[in-house]
């Protein structure tokens, strides 16, 4: 149900890591590897975040947009659904769903102004057409839950509100991975608190024990995040371009 994660479509749509990590055959035919697939999604998550700054929407809209984008690619190939167009369109759709509608022409204006690279340039009609394709690809499931709300509640409960800033930033970074497709948002929040407490040298063992949360899951999420920080902090632009060119879109 809409405001209850436990009866929501979001819960039902959660997938296993193996299901998310599937490169669709048209992309595979063009030589896209799993690592590159993840790389593009990460790059597009960053791109959505960047666009959001220009059109001035809240982090929540960004988070919803990135979730839409990642869900699309569990079902559709990048060959058919050009990521350079899917990313801004997801932001466009998320802005409507989160009641802070951004006009398509404004989005197109900023894309043209900020990005000189031809492959990112689209017209309004491209976005509007892609919006409908994305709605269909999402099967019209648009309500997404995020770790932000449980994060504040949990931090309050733990009496660790001094870690809000750090753990909030960690939650933002989780959208560079597919975690939101795989784990319940409160679990992601817990992992972020766990990492934050380790970084800040705080002993939270007793609190976690009391919560009776599945610590294996919390640790799995944390491991993946730490792995991300080790390996992917910086995305070289030429690497991204090489991969996108491999898909030879926009021809």
């Amino acid at each position: 149900m809409a405001a209850n994660f436990w009866s929501s479509s979001h819960l039902k749509l959660l997938m296993d890591q193996e299901e998310v990590d599937v490169v669709h055959s048209p992309d595979k035919e063009r030589g896209l590897t799993l690592e590159e697939f993840k790389y593009i999604k990460m790059h597009m998550a960053n791109y959505i975040g960047k666009l959001a700054q220009f059109v001035k929407v809240r982090q929540r809209v960004v988070a919803t947009a990135v979730t839409y984008m990642r869900r699309v690619y569990t079902r559709k190939s990048m060959t058919e659904y050009d990521p350079c167009l899917v990313a801004p369109t997801c932001l466009y759709l998320a802005s409507k769903a989160e009641e802070s509608t951004v006009q398509a022409r404004l989005l197109v204006f900023y894309i043209k102004k900020q990005l000189t690279d031809e492959k990112y340039r689209f017209e309004i009609k491209d976005i509007l057409e892609m919006e409908m394709k994305i709605l269909e690809a999402l099967d019209y499931y648009l309500v997404v839950y995020h770790p932000y709300r449980p994060l504040s509640q949990l931090l309050q409960d733990a009496g660790m509100t001094d870690m809000t800033h750090l753990s909030w930033g960690l939650v933002n970074d989780t959208y560079k991975m597919d975690l939101i497709l795989i784990y319940p948002p409160y679990m992601i929040a817990l992992a972020c608190i766990y990492i934050a407490s380790v970084l800040k040298d705080k002993d939270t063992t007793a609190w976690f024990e009391e919560l009776r949360a599945d610590m294996n899951v919390v640790k799995n999420i944390s491991m993946e995040m730490l792995d991300f920080y080790d390996n992917h902090k910086i995305l070289p632009e030429d690497r991204v371009n090489a991969i996108i060119n491999k898909l030879s879109l926009k021809q």
Partner: peptide, 17 residues
């Protein structure tokens, strides 16, 4: 001229849940 109407989006969004 802004694509699918936000009213429709929100109605579907709720009805789907």
């Amino acid at each position: 001229g802004d694509g699918v109407s936000p009213t429709a989006i929100r109605e579907i969004m709720l009805l789907r849940e």
